[in-house]
């Protein structure tokens, strides 16, 4: 893609930032089915990350979890290589004390223990905040994307030559319209940074947000019909480095869902009303914008009365 032309980045070393969705509502037996559990997902991810790191000795990988209770950095391959002295990731979110173990332990055990810790911490948080009204059930996708971009940004300010950054979202839950604006902003930042966002959608529905993210940034969007074989999809498609993508044919989705969700009823619409002041989207016409309060004045078409319409430039 476009990244291949940036001379300060090497074309065969990659930095991959992976976001993993850790949301109990998609990993339950009803959401995903018995065939694919978070256990299977993590096990396959361990293999994928190991194979990716074997592709080039300078390849880097960072993993971020996205959940209903927040996001966390759980793995950073650069930290283990540089040794324990400056091994602290930027935001360790309580998992920092495990970093120094990486020298002795394999990636698999580190990943597994971190994910276990993140899950139990999230459960604890959910229990602590559970009493206060409706619990949040949506994944902080926008937060995870933002953290991934911060990580990429940090690498891009590091010594040259820099690896080619890209992002991979393993996502399952449907879009959260609440995060529409934040998610879109993260996408536009990624587009500006020339960081492609690859998406592997393991949930039941397509995600319009992530489709648009992949489309905007030149990444690859995939919705595997068999999520239980996630590893095979990951090895075939997102494992391609950006340089190779110029020569290889990747599966492309037939179309991208560009529809936006309306602000009034959160419906996904393809034709609607847009506020001329704040660009809020509505599925119904109203005389006043509910977001910014702008009042619309309409020219009243009354052809029967023969009322003269104001001439432009009169």
């Amino acid at each position: 893609m476009a990244q291949g032309t940036v001379p300060s980045r090497t074309d065969d070393v990659s930095l991959m930032v992976i976001t993993l969705e850790i949301n109990p509502y998609i990993w339950d037996k009803h959401g995903m089915g018995a065939a694919f559990s978070i256990q299977a997902m993590v096990e396959q991810m361990i293999i994928f990350v190991n194979s990716y790191l074997l592709l080039h000795h300078q390849n880097q990988v960072a993993i971020i979890t996205a959940g209903t209770e927040g996001c966390a950095y759980i793995f950073d391959s650069a930290a283990s290589k540089q040794g324990p002295s400056n091994a602290q990731p930027a935001a360790t979110n309580g998992s920092a004390n495990g970093v120094s173990e990486e020298g002795e332990r394999g990636i698999g055990s580190i990943l597994a223990s971190r994910i276990q810790r993140v899950v139990s911490e999230a459960e604890q948080k959910w229990k602590d905040g559970g009493s206060g009204g409706e619990p949040n059930r949506t994944t902080y996708l926008s937060g995870a994307l933002s953290m991934a971009l911060c990580y990429v940004q940090r690498c891009l300010r590091g010594p040259k030559p820099q690896p080619q950054p890209r992002m991979l979202c393993i996502h399952g839950s449907p879009d959260a319209p609440q995060q529409y604006i934040a998610t879109m902003n993260a996408m536009f930042s990624a587009q500006k940074l020339q960081v492609p966002i690859d998406v592997c959608m393991i949930g039941g529905q397509d995600s319009a947000f992530l489709q648009q993210a992949a489309h905007l940034t030149g990444g690859l969007y995939q919705k595997p019909p068999r999520p239980e074989a996630l590893l095979q999809y990951l090895l075939m498609v997102p494992a391609m480095d950006l340089h190779s993508r110029q020569f290889l044919l990747a599966p492309r989705p037939a179309g991208v869902d560009f529809r936006a969700s309306c602000f009034c009823h959160k419906k996904t619409i393809d034709l609607g009303f847009v506020c001329s002041v704040c660009l809020s989207i509505f599925c119904q016409f109203s005389r006043e914008c509910s977001t910014c309060g702008a009042v619309y004045t309409m020219a009243r078409p009354t052809p029967a009365a023969g009322a003269k319409r104001k001439e432009p430039e009169a």
Partner: peptide, 21 residues
Amino acid sequence: LWAAMREQAGAVRTEGLGGVL
């Protein structure tokens, strides 16, 4: 649901992953 997820995450094997796929 939370308990189930925790349980599954706890069951992740780190060795002998040959039969995963």
